[in-house]
Design a binder for these strands. Structure first.
Lengths: 260, 260
DNA sequence: CAGTGGTCTAGACCACTGC
DNA sequence: CAGTGGTCTAGACCACTGT
C-alpha cells in the first residue's frame, strides 16, 4: 500500500474547493519530503480512486502544483516532483577584464569554476537594421550585427543571449564569425580599440513567452529574467547591447551599489 | 455584431490543440489592440457558441491567457484585459548619499519624481533572534531589530520590505521607532557613526507565495523579484539587511558594472 | 500491450455581479 | 433577476511510454 495518501481525505464541508484541498495535501507531502525530488506522484486514476472524485478535479489539483513549479507532468509516464536545478550566482564583477585573461568567455569560465559542464549552441550570426529598442540604447540607427546563442549547464538550457553591435564596429571582424575566438566578443572589441569602460544592466522579470519556454525547456510556473546589458567603451560610446533571457530558477544576480 | 471574433475559427486538422488555437487568437487580438486594456473579452458562453466547442475547452484557453498575465477573470463580471501598472525604474545610484539630502527616504523621493502618489503602510517594528539567512549576511548571531513595511504607488501595493539591523546598532535609536525620521534609516545609521560605504544586492525571481500574492494584490501570472540588500559601513561591517519582495511587473532594476 | 497524461464533450449546481 | 465565472461529474478518444 502506498503510504503517501493514507489518511488523507477532503473535507466536503469546507469552503475550500476540493481540488485545492487535494493540491494542499500533495503540496504538503512534497514539502515535508514524503515524496522526494524526482519521484512520481500517484497517477490521476489512483487519485480519483482514493479521493472519490472525477478526473477533472484531480487534474485541476495537479495543474495547481505544476503552475507553482513543484511538479512536472510527463506524457505517458506520470507526474514527477521537480528537481531543482543548480543555481548560478552571477557576480557583479563578472565582466571585469581580469576574468578574461585566461582567454575564456564569461559563461565558460564561470561554469567550470562551478563544476558544471557548460555548453553553447544555436549560434546564429546575421546583419539587420537595428530594432528600435536596440537602436535607442546603441544611439545608432544603422545596421547591426546580431549574434544569438543558447547556453546550457549540464545539458539543461538556462539562458539565451542576443548581442547587437553596430555594423560599422563589428562587420568584417571575428565578431561577425560564429566563433569569435578566445575571450569572446568583449576581448575582440578591446582589440579593435574599443576599450570597455562600464556596463549597464536593466533587469526585469516576467513569465516566459511560449517560444522562450520551448527553447529554454522551462517548467510551468517558472519566470524568466530579461537582462538588457549595454557595454560602453572609454569614449562613452555604446558598442554592444546584449538581450538575455534567463530561466529565473537557475540564477541569482549579484550587484554592488556605491553609497556615495 | 462584435467584430473581435469575426472570421476567427479553429483548424480542426491542425496538430495544435483547439484550446491553444483559441488562446492564440485571443492573445493576438489583445496584442494588436483589437481588445484594449481594461476591456472585456467575450464571455465563456459567447466563445463556446462562436467556436462550437465545450465550455472546458474555452476555459482551458482562457486559463492560458490568465497564466500568461494577459487577462484577469472577475467572478460574476467577466474576463478582462489586464491594465499594465506604471513601471518604476530603479536607478543604480538610488541609495547615493546625495539623494538623501532633501531628508526624504528613497521610495518617497523617487515616487514624487515619477509623479505618482507614494504610500507606506503595515509598518511593524520588533526585535527577534536573527533568522539564519540574515545572521549569515550580517555576520552576527545576536538579536536584530526588524522593520517591515509595505509600499504602494497610486494606491496599488508594489513592494514589501523587511529590514534587519543588529540590535546593538539600532536598539534604543530612532531606527527602532515606527517613524525613523527624515532621510529614513540610512540617514539615522550615518548619524550613529555608521557611514555607509557600499551595498550589495542579490536579485532572484519566482512566483509569489499565496501570502505575498495577497499582500501585494498580485494578478495571476506575475512573478515577484526578491531582492536582498546588505548595507556595509566604511569599516566593512554589515549594518543592515533588507529583504524586499517586489511585484515584477512594476519594476525594472538598473545597475552599473565596472569593466575593470 | 497496459498504463499514463492530453484533450474534449455535455451536462450540472454554485457564488458573485449588476440591473 | 439574468449573466457571469468557479467547481464538479462522468464519460470519451487520443498520444506517448515502457514492457
Amino acid at each position: 500500500m502506498g503510504t503517501l495518501l493514507d489518511g488523507l481525505a477532503v473535507d466536503t464541508a469546507s469552503d475550500r474547493a476540493v481540488f485545492r484541498q487535494i493540491a494542499d495535501q500533495l503540496r504538503a507531502a512534497i514539502q515535508d519530503g514524503s515524496v522526494s525530488e524526482g519521484n512520481r506522484l500517484p497517477s490521476e486514476a489512483q487519485l480519483m480512486e482514493h479521493y472519490g472524485v472525477a478526473r477533472m478535479t484531480v487534474r485541476n489539483a495537479l495543474q495547481l502544483l505544476e503552475m507553482e513549479g513543484l511538479t512536472r507532468a510527463e506524457h505517458g509516464r506520470g507526474v514527477y516532483v521537480r528537481r531543482r536545478p543548480p543555481v548560478r550566482r552571477l557576480a557583479s564583477d563578472r565582466f571585469a577584464r581580469r576574468h578574461r585573461k585566461e582567454g575564456k568567455a564569461a559563461f565558460i569560465a564561470e561554469s567550470e569554476q562551478l563544476g558544471a559542464q557548460p555548453d553553447v549552441d544555436m549560434i546564429q550570426v546575421s546583419e539587420m537594421p537595428a530594432p528600435p529598442e536596440i537602436a535607442e540604447r546603441l544611439n545608432c540607427a544603422g545596421p547591426v550585427i546580431v549574434r544569438s546563442r543558447r547556453y546550457s549547464l549540464n545539458g539543461t538550457p538556462v539562458e539565451t543571449a542576443t548581442s547587437y553591435l553596430p555594423a560599422d564596429v563589428a562587420k568584417g571582424t571575428p565578431i561577425a564569425d560564429p566563433n569569435p575566438g578566445p575571450g569572446g566578443i568583449y576581448a575582440r572589441l578591446e582589440e579593435l580599440g574599443h576599450t570597455l569602460e562600464r556596463f549597464t544592466e536593466e533587469v526585469s522579470a516576467r513569465m516566459p513567452t511560449e517560444a522562450e519556454a520551448r527553447v529554454l525547456a522551462m517548467m510551468p510556473g517558472v519566470p524568466v529574467f530579461r537582462l538588457i546589458r549595454t557595454a560602453y567603451d572609454v569614449e562613452g560610446r555604446a558598442v554592444e547591447v546584449c538581450d538575455t533571457i534567463m530561466s529565473a530558477d537557475a540564477y541569482v544576480l549579484n550587484y554592488e551599489l556605491p553609497a556615495h
